[in-house]
Design a protein around this nucleic acid. Structure first.
Lengths: 325, 325
DNA sequence: TTGAAAGCGGTACCAC
DNA sequence: GTGGTACCGCTTTCAA
């Protein structure tokens, strides 16, 4: 950007053509003769022409970028990095940049320039979300959110945690483990994934007429927290399976349990929600891969749709998590 | 962006002032009378004026954004998310957007518009880095990199892994653990952090005239990998401390060791590199917090410096990791 | 202390 | 098929 680079006018001059023609040739709208088009393209390639995004944006009133907001509370969970990169990948497909929205810029600075925004897992009352609503661009949420008024919410894409929880539990049962416990982070608001999982678990137990055993612990537990929780689970003799609500904890818990069980001779099947296959390991009988990268891609694709054609009412879409063994 | 929003001209008209005056008032350059300035600011606030970034960029030849490239291979490690958000935070301080660079955009699409680029932990031969070199903007690397020619490399900021490794080991020794083993991922290239840690460890052992015990394992090990490695470490009876080279593994290993040691009655002090205090727990005697968020901020601040004033030769700077107990 | 006017590099719309 | 020209909204320079 700093040093002046090749512009359309430069090309036009050196080719003895007009601005317009060069521009048209470059973007391939059928207006120009194929021969001139080739000439232009060649020259552009040679001289390393790169379109000036700012100029395009100014003229077309588009930003060429989308924003992603990941609330601070959840940022360090392993799920969100692959999600963000999924969004970035899909965005780059459409020649969009992905801007990471963090705290809101201070006093009167210009707003982040975006054509649309993706918000994931925002908690009620998030101040940044409040400001995002004021931007004159469509908002897509990944996971539900209460804070965004329906007319500002272009689309929602979500994972069917409640249903998928049942699917995992069914699978566990089919594999011989009929009395599962759920280990979940302390519940947030009613729309949060953890709460949805808890509901899914509860209703599965109800359907199966089995008692439920829900154990909660902090999202980022210490080894002691973990040990306490595991002890609590194993205290119920009938428990023969455990479903972990998030992977960060599951990887550690599996090791704890491995030892606890090997001393007592007890056998417990493990299942977990998976947020990053990279970190996944084979201690689990069954797992629900949230496919965060794909989730991010889908969210970005959805955003693209609503940017191209604003819907008259909120679109709802599902992202399929995948059962793995 | 889509619907036309309030511009400087709008304000100027409604206030009976000129474009110029309004613009000057807005940006606070002392040109305008304080009274008019207040009038303008008030009107701007009321009508929700937001500067059009594209126009500013076009005029000032700046992009108003910086790019961050995190190579695919390392993306899922817990270190990089807080790092990225540190960069984003600092960027927003300077009214910069942060663009996440992923794969390179396809065929002739306009390049990501950035004023500078931060590259972290790129491996030799990374194709995206090759392309970034062609951009006419300064590059700052976090951690060293071979691929970027000195004249294109504006600055480097890095953690003194080699030295800090010694600091941790000294501390461990002061606390009574004199025979540490190092658990490290299988070494990458010679500049990688894992390799630097290994060297730091080796030279510490040499200085102390102690035998070294290096155990490597995959970056994302299974529980079995982990168990094997831990067994290997404990096989050496003299080992009374273990330093883990990355946290993702340390949290899990601590639990393994807890059990292994409690059965054999052995006591081993643990130390680890910390990439996210959120995930940190109390099982460690001592730890080296890399402070990735701060690292990201510092990298962004450094980039800002070199964008504002291009250096005539590569700037080198250190990021201080912090010993915690 | 203020205003007028000329761009920045594209795109859109009009003529030819 | 091609060229001319008026913008997009802001910064900058020069003049009043």
């Amino acid at each position: 950007m700093n040093r002046r680079s090749v512009t359309i006018v430069d090309l036009a001059e050196s080719l003895g053509l007009s601005k317009t023609t060069v521009a048209d040739a470059l973007k391939g709208s059928g207006r120009v003769a194929e021969s001139t088009r080739r000439r232009v393209l060649e020259a552009a390639g040679e001289r390393g022409y790169m379109a000036n995004r700012a100029a395009q944006q100014l003229r077309t009133r588009s930003a060429g970028a989308i924003g992603l907001y990941i609330p601070p509370k959840v940022r360090s969970m392993s799920f969100y990095m692959p999600f963000a990169l999924g969004v970035a990948d899909e965005a780059s497909h459409h020649a969009w940049d992905l801007t990471l929205l963090t705290r809101w810029p201070r006093n009167g600075k210009p707003a982040n320039q975006v054509d649309g925004v993706i918000v994931i897992d925002a908690l009620p009352g998030d101040p940044v979300v409040k400001r995002l609503i004021d931007l004159p661009v469509p908002i897509v949420t990944a996971g539900r959110s209460t804070d965004i008024p329906p007319d500002r919410l272009a689309a929602v894409i979500e994972i069917e945690y409640e249903r998928m929880c049942g699917v995992v539990l069914d699978r566990l049962e089919a594999l011989g483990a009929g009395r599962p416990a759920l280990v979940s982070p302390v519940a947030g608001d009613d729309l949060s994934w953890s709460r949805q999982l808890q509901r899914g678990y509860q209703s599965w137990c109800d359907r199966q007429r089995k008692p439920s055993h829900l154990v909660t612990m902090p999202t980022f537990p210490t080894t002691d927290d973990l040990a306490t929780a595991m002890a609590k689970v194993l205290a119920v003799q009938e428990i023969d399976a455990i479903l972990f609500a998030w992977q960060d904890i599951a990887t550690r818990a599996a090791i704890q349990l491995d030892h606890l069980c090997s001393t007592t001779g007890r056998s417990v099947s493990l299942a977990t929600i998976v947020s990053s296959m990279d970190h996944f390991n084979n201690a689990y009988l069954t797992a629900l891969d949230l496919r965060p990268h794909l989730f991010g891609q889908s969210a970005a694709r959805l955003l693209r749709e609503v940017v191209v054609e604003p819907p008259n009412r909120t679109i709802h879409r599902l992202h399929e998590a995948k059962l793995v063994e």
